[in-house]
């Protein structure tokens, strides 16, 4: 296999990094994606993902214009994602009407801020690679970052599994059982934000939401319960990333879109199959 040889080639470490980052991140994507799909907050997760561009822009500006070397695009992305999660979370909790309008506005404002920062950053910066991913940008440092965030997200999600499940399934009842549901909802959105940042390098801001929700959506066709759905979603997610990288390398295609197209095709197939089975029963 050409791809396997390429993985072992010391001259192209980024392919190894991309695969390692993808497999590690699949765990977070499977778990958090399941919550996002089950709670039907894809739109909110999408808004958070797009706001990340604001942080990336600010990070680039700080690094190149202001010379703040410790605050680069990745730190900016994390800060922006968390900030966006909290603001959007508060809007969705407290806005009694027109929630979608407010969230749509935040979505666009976050991106606009990022593009303004990038325009004012000296030197040419290609926003495309942040919007749609570029595995050439992945360094060994990113890998460590992914590992730390992954442990944080998975650890929290596993520790508070029952709380998140209850808050997603029946928020009112969870409140009556003494759970601070607003806090857990915000925490869940913050975990979603961190998860999105994990793979911005590989698939980019625009497409990361598909990688968050499609594996869980495919898994929901086969899973009996949330836990099974998480396990299956993790497996599907790492399969999409692995096969996407292999195909993109073999046919010289951009890796982000290849991964998303594979995920999309499998999703359509699984949903079609599910419909077919449901109709036969």
């Amino acid at each position: 296999m050409e791809f396997l040889n390429a993985l072992a080639d010391p001259a192209i470490p980024f392919l190894r990094y991309a695969l390692a980052a993808g497999i590690m991140a699949s765990l977070s994507f499977g778990i958090i994606g399941t919550y996002v799909v089950a709670r039907r907050i894809t739109y909110i997760a999408g808004a958070i993902a797009h706001c990340v561009l604001g942080g990336i822009g600010a990070g680039l500006y700080c690094e190149h214009k202001l010379g703040i070397t410790w605050f680069g695009p990745l730190s900016g992305a994390i800060v922006a994602a968390l900030l966006a999660a909290i603001i959007i979370g508060l809007v969705s909790l407290h806005a009694s009407q027109r929630e979608d309008t407010a969230i749509g506005a935040l979505w666009a404002i976050g991106m606009a801020i990022g593009l303004l920062f990038i325009a004012k950053t000296p030197g040419y910066i290609e926003p495309m690679s942040y919007l749609f991913g570029n595995i050439l940008l992945i360094s060994e440092f990113d890998l460590w970052m992914v590992l730390v965030l992954d442990i944080l997200v998975v650890g929290t999600a596993v520790l508070f599994y029952h709380k998140f499940l209850a808050v997603c399934f029946d928020e009112e009842y969870a409140r009556l059982r003494g759970v601070r549901t607003d806090l857990y909802y915000l925490l869940l959105l913050c975990l979603t934000a961190l998860t999105v940042v994990l793979l911005v390098r590989v698939v980019g801001i625009v497409m990361v939401i598909a990688l968050l929700t499609l594996p869980a959506a495919v898994a929901s066709n086969f899973a009996k319960g949330l836990l099974q759905m998480m396990v299956l979603a993790t497996l599907f997610c790492s399969f999409f990333i692995g096969s996407g990288l292999a195909i993109s390398y073999s046919f010289d295609l951009p890796s982000g879109p290849t991964i998303i197209v594979i995920a999309g095709l499998v999703y359509l197939l699984a949903t079609g199959l599910g419909q077919f089975r449901a109709r036969r029963n």
């Binding site: 520790l159 508070f160 029952h162 499940l165 399934f169 059982r177 759970v179 899973a223 759905m229």
Partner: peptide, 27 residues
């Protein structure tokens, strides 16, 4: 009023009645 597609088992629903007795981890 429940989401008819939410993937939760019957036992998990009933266990929610004990939610106040755990902070984190398993029941």
């Amino acid at each position: 009023r429940f989401d008819p597609q939410f993937p939760i088992t019957v036992l998990e629903v009933v266990l929610m009645g004990r939610l106040d007795r755990i902070f984190c981890g398993a029941y």
